[in-house]
Design a protein around this nucleic acid. Structure first.
Lengths: 236, 236
DNA sequence: TTCTCTCAACGAACGGCGTTCGTTACGAAC
DNA sequence: GTTCGTAACGAACGCCGTTCGTTGAGAGAA
């Protein structure tokens, strides 16, 4: 049991905490992973660090900057193939895109924050440089390569964002993961089956196909479409 | 000049307003168009109708439902080719996707609200039914058609969302449209030109290509990729 | 050692948000 | 003329991002 400090000696409750941008970003990411993007607020981050929200503003301009920093951190985690990888561009692009999707998906909803705006952090640049290099190395014209990169980045972000919304629905439901999926898709199936087949003949006839395929499968399908599209552009 | 009502007759300031879901949705859309998604709040909508936020809850479950209703309304505005349109599926899909993009873009940021979740409103169903019909009519297998539809819908939404973010950056800047674009891209160009070319050789060599092409051109480019991808899938 | 100065940390507050609760009073039904 | 369901509402709750003015720890100067 601690000896109580004499009351006249104005009690220093805590040794003054040492905040830093790194620590704040790290904390933000932990909350993001544990509880989703909605839970990441200045107050919540501050609370996690046993302080008030105002204290964060010495290290971070505002919430937007904090989210950008978190995003950059995540981008930095993406593994890229070696610069001298001998595989054809298709395979390398596929790997880069897949890795990006997986890494971003691991941190769920952060994707929402950066759908637009050319990202300019160092990790984002490293990423863009590599993708561009692979495509140009594959003989793709500059104009096509830059646009393809743009569309691929958008595709990754959109897919991750979409799946993060499912994740937050799941979280909000409070159910077990498997239970949630079963219930949710069961509900969708029921709804589609309830449609009047005379007004929606094609939909009614395709209910099972629409429910097949998980997120990864759909992602891969779309990626294939885009890459085949790029190839088609080269042949013409 | 109106005769003032006698003070003892408890003044009925207004004939009690007649709210309705339709009126609320309409008001929400007007605010969305004029001031962007951020401006659409329950309080703001209520204020526009000269009432308090609580009054809206008799007609709308919550903000999320309001946004969904607004989205459905917008989807309903999309023009679709006639059911017996004789053109090949590629052209029809292109037209549907293009119309969707344009209509959604007209109402900017509403796209943000529905990236995920199988939309289930009547207008969304009409849309899905038609796209599916076109593709199945073109001989595309059910499984491919449903997945392609899924990816196309995601593509539209992502593109519209992205461009809406640019729009809100523009709005926030307070500049003239042209001025904003010039300034913004000038800034990007400067940033890319400032990169050390030995670390980012490909990016440095592609700066001009990256800045070419407006939103529509990029959208069209991506759409071409996806459709070519679907075609490639049919040949194999 | 003592003083000074800078600036990270902080407590409190502002104006916004979505939503809920309990009350009121209109208009239809009886 | 009375009753009654319910749309409309005012007030409040607990969040949010951000700003302001104060405080006090610690580094550098004297």
């Amino acid at each position: 049991m601690e000896t109580p400090a004499p009351p006249w000696r104005t009690a220093r409750k805590q040794p003054r905490r040492q905040l830093s941008q790194e620590l704040i970003v790290e904390t933000g990411l932990r909350i993001l992973d544990d509880e989703g993007l909605e839970a990441v607020s200045m107050r919540r981050v501050a609370q996690e660090l046993n302080t008030g929200p105002a204290s964060l503003y010495a290290h971070v301009a505002n919430k937007e900057e904090l989210l950008e920093l978190m995003y950059e951190q995540v981008i930095g985690e993406i593994e890229l193939p070696a610069p001298d990888d001998p595989r054809p561009w298709q395979e390398q692009i596929r790997e880069i895109v897949r890795n990006s999707q997986r890494t971003l998906a691991r941190h769920g909803s952060i994707a929402a924050t950066v759908m637009a705006g050319v990202p300019t952090g160092p990790n984002s640049m490293r990423m863009a440089e590599r993708m561009l290099g692979v495509m140009l190395g594959g003989g793709i014209p500059k104009r096509v390569a830059t646009m393809a990169m743009d569309r691929l980045a958008m595709y990754i972000t959109a897919d991750v964002y979409e799946s993060s919304l499912y994740q937050s629905m799941w979280r909000a439901s409070g159910k077990e993961r498997e239970q949630f999926v079963t219930d949710y898709f069961g509900q969708i199936r029921e709804y589609f089956l309830s449609l009047p087949p005379e007004r929606f003949p094609h939909l009614s006839a395709s209910v099972e196909e629409m429910l097949e395929g998980d997120g990864d499968e759909r992602f891969e399908f779309g990626l294939d479409l885009i890459i085949a599209g790029i190839e088609a552009r080269l042949k013409s």
